[in-house]
Structures are given as C-alpha cells and as structure tokens.
Design a protein around this nucleic acid. Structure first.
Lengths: 248, 248
DNA sequence: CCAAAAGTGTTGGCTATACACCCATGA
DNA sequence: TCATGGGTGTATAGCCAACACTTTTGG
C-alpha cells in the first residue's frame, strides 16, 4: 500500500565539465494510476492533469522520486530510489527538508520529504527507471521548466549543499577516484560560487593530509600533465567525525 | 479534516537558572478520538494503548504537537501550536527533520515533522493548551521517560541548535530583554557544552557591536552589580544575513 | 616555439588562545 | 571583613589573504 499524501524526492547533484549538474526526470503519467483506488481520486487526478498541462508535457521536468510505500523507511526508500535510477549502492544522502504548503500541488495535499545526494558521474550508470519516460542532467544555472515547487526544492538542496561543503569535505563524492587538484578546486568554486586562490587552496588541502599522491599523471593533455590524487578514506572519515574543520 | 499519518511536533528550548530546558507535555488521550473515523482505526488505537502503557501513564511525556489539519501549512501550523501553548506570537522556529521509520509508533504509520524553537522564559505565559493534561519544563540533562522516539527527536533538535549556535547568534532568543554578559556566556556554555574563557568571550562579543549598554545595573545582588545590555536588533539582523561569522 | 594549464613561497595583518588579579556589593 | 561574582590587558602562535613567475607538455 502506498501513502498517497507523502512523496520522497531526491535532488541528485553531479559534477561534469567543471559544472554542477542536477538530475531530473519525466515520470510516466500512466504510473499515477497505481495510486488510484477510488472513483473520487480518479477525478482528482483528472482535474490535476487538466489544470496542469505541464504534467503531461515533454517540456516540464520533475525531481526523481515517488510516493512512499507503507512499509518503507524514509531514508531507506530514498536510497532505494537512487539505486533504481543510478545503479549506485553506496551513496551520500541527506534529508534536506519537508515541503508541505497546502497549495504546492494543485488539488492535492502532498508532503514531499526532499533528500539530496552527491553522485560521481564516472561510476553511475543512468538506467531509465521503470517509472520514467526520460532522465537527464541539467546545468544548475540552466534548470528547465519544472513542475510544482521543484525549483524551490532544488534551491533549498543547493543551499544545504553549500552550507555542508564549508564544514565537511563533501566534495569528494562528486569526483572520480583519481583527480587533479585543479579539478578539486573547480568543484569547490562551483559549489561555493566563488573563485579561490590556487596557492592558498593547495596549501590548505595539503595541510589536511587528506590526499594520497597516486604517482600517476594525466595523459594526452596539451599542457603540463597534472598529478593524480585519491583521497585517504581514513583521514576523510576522521575529518567528518570532527566536523567543523573544512573551511576552504 | 486531519491527516492521520502526519504530525507536527515542536522541541521548545528555554534557558532558566543557567540550564537549558525543554518543554514537554502529556496529551489528553481522549483527544485521539478526534482522529477516529472508522471502526478499523478505533481498533488500531485500542491496540496502541494496550501495547503501550506509557501512553496513558502520568510518568511519560511527549513533544508538543498534533496531527496536521488538511488546510494548514507546515510552518504555519508549527507556529500555531506554539502560540496556543505559550502565548508567544513572534518566535524563532526552524524545521529540524522529518522522522518516518515504519516502526517508530507501534501499529501506526506516522511521519513526524519536527521543529525546534527558542523561547524566552520571561515573556511566555505557559497556558495549558486545551489538548494537554499537563505541560512542564525539563532540564536537558534530565529528560523524563518519553513516548516513542521522542528522545531521538530531542537529540536531533539539540544537535541542530548546537550547529546553528556556532554560526548564528541564536542565543539571544533565549535571554530576557536586558541581560548581563555573564548570562550570555553561560547560555553559550550550556548550548555548546563547553567552558569559555571570560575575557576572550567578552572581547569577541564587543567586537561585533551587537550589544547596547543600557546604563542600568543589576540590583540587590550580593556582589558587584553587573551591567545590563540589550542587543542591537539591526546589527543582529545584519549578522544573521551575513550568516557565518559568529564563532564563539 | 607557442599555447595552456600546473605548480610553487613569502609576507603582513588579523585572530585565537592562554593566563591572574583587583573591584564592587550586600550580608 | 568576607564571600561572591564582575570586570579588565597583554603576549604569542597560528592562520588567512594577497600576490607573480617558472615549469611541463603536446601541437
């Protein structure tokens, strides 16, 4: 049984071409029929679709998520949604906030428990979830038309990510296993929305002892090849424990 | 109409006798009957009470909150709950997180959207809400027996308060209009859970230009009378805007 | 040899911390 | 006059911000 007035939605962040991205989808309208258990609800859905051409349109996008099944845990279900969509098993996942204004979804009272997650684009395998018509990454500065209050939810998640990034080394979830210092810096620049000084940035990172030099270098680049690093997962966990010491 | 699977609960913090306090209540079990609209639900409630002697007991306490009415906004309803209980109109109120494990309330699936609030004990007027059998302040280090996962919710709210206090001058909501620097320091000590150096604390506070000297002093104290301060609401708002600059 | 990005140190100012004694008041 | 908490300054170490040139590589 599904809880018709509660949905769990995920804001998935990714980092590609030095840009912060968000994963959005278009859900199959037919799937909504799963929730129809009475004549009255059917009428509500019909009205919802009539009043919101956006819902059926190919030009409107939504957050990845569905209504909460009775027996599922909130955190666990958010994780399950991500697994289905990306194939990733061990993801960074945080509850952002619950949205519940009466008018946010017309003709329908739904609370949305929003999560955000950080995805490493190298490792995920974007499957079309059986619930989706299509799935796509969008640049954070170039969000398409979205249904309902999705824009507000994305903004709240982004704000949370920015806060989090100042005191926790969250950035690492978004990078490939081996990365250059320049990539790491661009990532923080794009999350924090400001330019950083290269020398100072490198000093700070080095002082944390968070990085391991892989002794490898970039190949086939038309400029001096950069060293590749991985991060030290033990130091990483220690820093996360201690919490508030990652001011960039 | 009331949403039976969603409740809004508030963790109210207060500061008295140099201790951080939490306001808890005992709800009237009879009120639960408001939610009974079917034979089946009545059975559920009966089982709930049979399996949880805590619910009827005078020895168990709960968070102030109720189920969410259909037409109410989440934030708005949390505010309304506070108004009814304390008479306060303009309160500091933040969403903490939504709790939703399937087993948290036995035999019943309820999501609880938790809020926390900071109350100035001088100004509130604890009314017994019509929903409550009793209401009482408890020392944060001496929480009584509580129903369900209330302890976990209080801990989450406390954690959020501690995080918040490091970067925002939240403490001021908990103090009377005129206060001494020693009071302010004790407040921060009790929120952060650590002793602070008096001279350094005072230096830092003075540098913020956040305080206005009222030119008044304590009266009838058996020691040198301390100066009384109020805080400068404009500077306060400016600091809140700027956000991350209130490390004590 | 040129373009493009990688990589590297020093300084001055500010901020955090550590620390101990005298003052005012009422009982 | 004593007990209680109020109130004050300085020195040191560490951290942060500002700033420009040389190196490596492929084309």
């Amino acid at each position: 049984m599904i809880l018709k007035n509660i949905s769990v939605d995920c804001v998935l962040f990714g980092f590609q071409n030095n840009k912060l991205k968000v994963l959005l989808w278009q859900a199959e309208p037919e799937l909504l029929e799963n929730f129809l258990t009475s004549e009255e609800e059917y009428e509500q859905i019909k009205i919802l679709f009539e009043k919101n051409p956006a819902l059926g349109s190919d030009n409107y996008w939504g957050l990845i998520g569905t209504h909460l099944p009775m027996e599922e845990d909130l955190d666990g279900y958010a994780k399950k949604i991500l697994q289905t969509t990306t194939g990733l098993d061990d993801v960074y996942l945080k509850q952002v906030k619950t949205f519940g204004s009466p008018g946010r979804v017309p003709h329908y009272r739904v609370l949305t428990v929003a999560y955000y997650s950080l995805i490493n684009p190298d490792y995920h395998d974007l499957k079309l979830s059986p619930l989706a018509k299509s799935v796509r990454w969008f640049d954070i500065d170039d969000i398409p038309n979205v249904i309902f209050d999705v824009k507000e939810i994305i903004n709240a998640a982004l704000k949370k990510l920015r806060e989090e990034a100042q005191y926790h080394p969250v950035g690492f979830h978004l990078l490939p296993e081996k990365f250059t210092l320049t990539q790491l810096q661009s990532l923080y620049e794009v999350i924090l929305g400001e330019k950083l000084d290269t020398r100072n940035f490198r000093k700070k990172i080095q002082n944390m002892n968070l990085l391991i030099d892989t002794q490898e270098k970039q190949k086939n680049v038309a400029h001096r090849a950069a060293k590749l690093y991985t991060f030290d997962i033990d130091v990483y966990h220690k820093l996360v424990e201690e919490g508030l010491n990652f001011r960039i």
